[in-house]
Design a protein around this nucleic acid. Structure first.
Lengths: 338, 338
DNA sequence: TGCAGGAGCTATACCGGTTTATCACTTCAG
DNA sequence: CTGAAGTGATAAACCGGTATAGCTCCTGCA
């Protein structure tokens, strides 16, 4: 028999459809003996619920969504999303929830997707990444009453639930280490300034500068591309007085920066120390291998999944779960200044 | 009104549910005037079909699946999948079909997913990647009668529909170029030998060697990891008589190989030319930038989506669509041997 | 003995669409 | 003028589950 339905099971068990539904969902209404019999038959027929039928009846689809609004070409190289997605799936599959992934060009398209998903009942909730400063998505999602969890940005008051790690502490760990090595001129090649995490990192550096006795600690915004990472590095290294260390907001930019240093004959780590936010195979492939800030992105995703499921189960709850701080993995690209 | 249904539309239009369904799906049974009226009302109420309801009624879910069976850590760096997914989505979204993406550890888990998807009616069809030599997935999918399209491997007789580019021609383009530069000792750091594309590339090189007068043209299998790529390179460069050119089956391995060359003081491209199968930002970030074989992976995905939709619409049709050949992008890592 | 209450189950409505059988009405050929 | 075919619609069944009202026993207690 191809694709048995609960009616088939009901027939064989000699009970009603309703009883079968009760038994299969582990809810009261049938005796233990009957339940066992029904479960055995379901098992034997290798029955699986028809997802659409269940969705229609139970008005929940057992599926959550993730929209990534970045140009596809910048996506592949960063392991961040691949790891995040794996982690999400790991957290979701335990509850047999599936993940809808969509890559779009910009935030406008992203919001449109939320509207469509909502009106077509395609997801029970969504995960938000790359939070910007006054993020338009938050109000949209609230208006839609679509459960959502923000990744990476702590929600303020009345904000959405979130899963986050401290960008501030991460940046402090980096600059305190560099300062301890003796660096006093540290530059920061930042990401897009309208991302909240970029802002937080910039602020952390600015705040820490006086305490650490930094002479100069500029944060230079970029668009996260390797091209701008390289250009910014070139500018920094062309100054009369160069920074002795540069912190990059992504591994791709750090690699591009290393290339510029080599091209300009600036030795790393002899004349310049380099640190990358976000670790990946990229940083390890370089010569010298790059000192980097490693986060457990997989675990991040797992936790986000958990929180989202809680929010879906109990709409209105606001959870702000802080995850483990990133750790600084020191490799060959950092040393005391000469 | 929140989330209007076709019953609401039927009410306002003063017609039956059935008429509304006909009108909205562009099928005969209603007059043009009525159709226009219904469409206008649907538009005004911003109605969207409830995906589960439609799936239940029409026994099709407007969703296709892609399972990637690779350890998550090796995934992120290769832009291949990110571009493929983007391309797939681009081809699918035109028909309002969504993509289910799942990352699993191994083929066994992948097959299990197909069974689940099938019995839960979660997808109308699937995309297959990383075809192996006697791939167990093919028989499974045939048994399930789940429409499928193979990416990258041309199907033989009685095989599944496919979208492919010629690995053979690609490899020939590379070695013919290297031979033209004067190289006679060309090594090939290959991928996993049970992947069909690895086999085809190895065979292409072996076949072309005599014609091009190659003295030595070994293909050395690896597991596609940077570690084995490096180790294999180290072995090659430690031989008494070194190859003057190495072709790598992935960009990650090529980068690792470049690192080994630098570490061993072998100048690139002076003493060693390097070519990478698969182009990405990685190859461009290197110094020297790597000559690479670029494929339009996005377009690849788009075509795969098209073919899959055709197969779903007309099960049984076997399409083997060949896509544009990869082109060799020459950068700084190749030169005549010294 | 009568009745409340609960366990165990059935029958049925329902979710929001699609599909089919049927019907009224028009048109046109014979 | 009649019958056949076609058009534009309706009503109802259906997809495969879930949710709920209600029914039948059985038990316990007054």
């Amino acid at each position: 028999m191809a694709r048995p339905t609960i009616a088939d099971i009901a027939d064989r068990a000699g009970v009603s459809k309703g009883a079968v539904s009760f038994a299969l969902n582990g809810r009261p209404g049938v005796s233990d003996a009957t339940r066992a019999r029904i479960l055995a038959i379901a098992e034997q027929l290798s029955w699986r619920p028809h997802s659409a039928a269940r969705a229609l009846g139970a008005s929940r689809v057992d599926s959550v969504g993730l929209v990534i609004a970045r140009p596809a070409r910048t996506l592949g190289v960063e392991p961040f999303f691949a790891h995040l997605v794996s982690g999400l799936q790991s957290g979701l599959s335990a509850h047999s929830i599936s993940l809808q992934l969509l890559i779009v060009e910009d935030t406008e398209a992203e919001i449109e997707v939320y509207h469509r998903w909502h009106s077509e009942h395609r997801v029970d909730g969504v995960i938000l990444v790359d939070l910007t400063v006054r993020d338009p998505r938050i109000d949209e999602l609230k208006a839609l009453e679509l459960p959502a969890v923000v990744i990476g940005g702590r929600g303020g008051k009345g904000a959405l639930p979130s899963v986050w790690a401290s960008d501030r502490d991460a940046m402090l760990a980096v600059v305190e280490y560099l300062a301890a090595l003796g660096h006093r001129r540290i530059a920061h090649v930042a990401g897009t300034p309208n991302f909240q995490h970029t802002q937080r990192r910039m602020r952390a550096l600015r705040d820490a500068a006086p305490r650490l006795g930094l002479v100069d600690a500029p944060s230079l915004p970029t668009d996260f591309s390797d091209a701008e990472g390289a250009a910014t590095t070139r500018k920094l290294l062309s100054q009369a007085v160069r920074p002795t260390a540069i912190v990059y907001d992504s591994d791709v930019m750090a690699v591009a920066g290393l290339g510029v240093a080599m091209e300009m004959g600036v030795s790393v780590p002899g004349e310049l120390s380099i640190v990358a936010f976000d670790d990946s195979i990229l940083t390890q492939l370089m010569h010298p291998a790059l000192t980097a800030l490693s986060r457990d992105t997989f675990e991040f995703g797992r936790q986000a999944a958990e929180v989202l499921l809680e929010v879906i189960a109990e709409p209105g709850t606001t959870i702000n779960r802080r995850t483990a701080d990133p750790v600084l993995t020191v490799r060959e690209s950092t040393a005391p200044p000469s």
